[in-house]
Design a protein around this nucleic acid. Structure first.
Lengths: 105, 105
DNA sequence: CTCGTACTACGATGGCCCTCGTACTTAGCG
DNA sequence: CGCTAAGTACGAGGGCCATCGTAGTACGAG
C-alpha cells in the first residue's frame, strides 16, 4: 500500500488482528498513550507521554502498540515519532476507535 | 434504571469501565461468545456455545464477560440465559461493538 | 572526541489469568 | 427418592506479561 522508510517492523493493514488490537488497548498505560495520540494530530515523541512509569516500561508499551498495529513509530534523530494508525483502524474496525475514545476517563 | 430479578451480580451501566470491557473482549474464546450472541437476538444458553473448552472454563469466561458488563446472565431453570448488553455498550462506547464485530474472522 | 539525551535490549520478578479436573448444587423428570 | 443435565466453586498448574534496573547503542551539540 504505502511505502514508508522505516526500520521498525509494523504489521501491514491486513496483518492486523482484532484480538491483538483489543489486548493492546486493554492496558491502562497504553490506553492513556492512545488518548494522548488522538488529541495531537502530528504524533508525539515517546518522551512526551506523561506517565508514572520507567523508560523501559514506556518502550515496552510503545512496542506493544506498534506490533499490534495500533500506532506507527518513525525514527527522527534520537527520538521516535509515534502516530495513531487511525485510517487503518477505522477502515478495519469502523467505530472502534471512536467508541474507545468516547469513554469517560 | 431497570429493575430485573437477578441473583448474579452485574455492574450497573455507570460502573462499566472501558478497560474491563476491552480486556474481556481481548480473549479469543470470549470474542467467539460475543460474536455468537450478536448473531442471535434472543440470547443463548451457556451450553449452546460451540467451543473446544471444558465446562468450568466456559463458566469462567461467561463470568468474566458478565463482570465486565458485556453480557447479562439470567437464570432459567438449570440453565443461564446470556444476552449482549448492546444498548449499554452502544451508548457508552458508540461504535465499539460494531467495530469489533466488523472484524474479519 | 566527549558528553548528554533518547531510546533499546536483556534478564529478573511478581502477579494475573486461562485452563482444567473434581466435587458440589440446583432443577426437572419419573 | 434416584437420576440426569446444567452450571458453579475451588484449587492447582502453567504461561503470559507489566514492571523495573542496568547496560548498551545511536544521534546531535559543542
Amino acid at each position: 500500500m504505502e511505502v514508508m522508510p522505516e526500520d521498525l517492523p509494523h504489521p501491514s493493514k491486513d496483518e492486523i488482528r482484532i484480538e491483538a488490537v483489543l489486548h493492546a488497548l486493554a492496558d491502562p498505560v497504553r490506553l492513556t498513550i492512545v488518548r494522548e495520540l488522538a488529541s495531537c494530530v502530528d504524533g508525539a515523541t515517546c518522551g512526551t507521554f506523561e506517565l508514572p512509569i520507567s523508560k523501559s516500561t514506556r518502550t515496552h508499551h510503545v512496542r506493544a502498540l506498534r506490533e499490534a498495529g495500533v500506532v506507527n513509530v518513525r525514527p527522527e534523530g534520537t527520538s521516535r515519532i509515534v502516530t495513531l494508525r487511525r485510517d487503518d483502524l477505522d477502515s478495519l474496525y469502523p467505530g472502534l476507535l471512536n467508541g474507545v475514545l468516547a469513554a469517560r476517563q
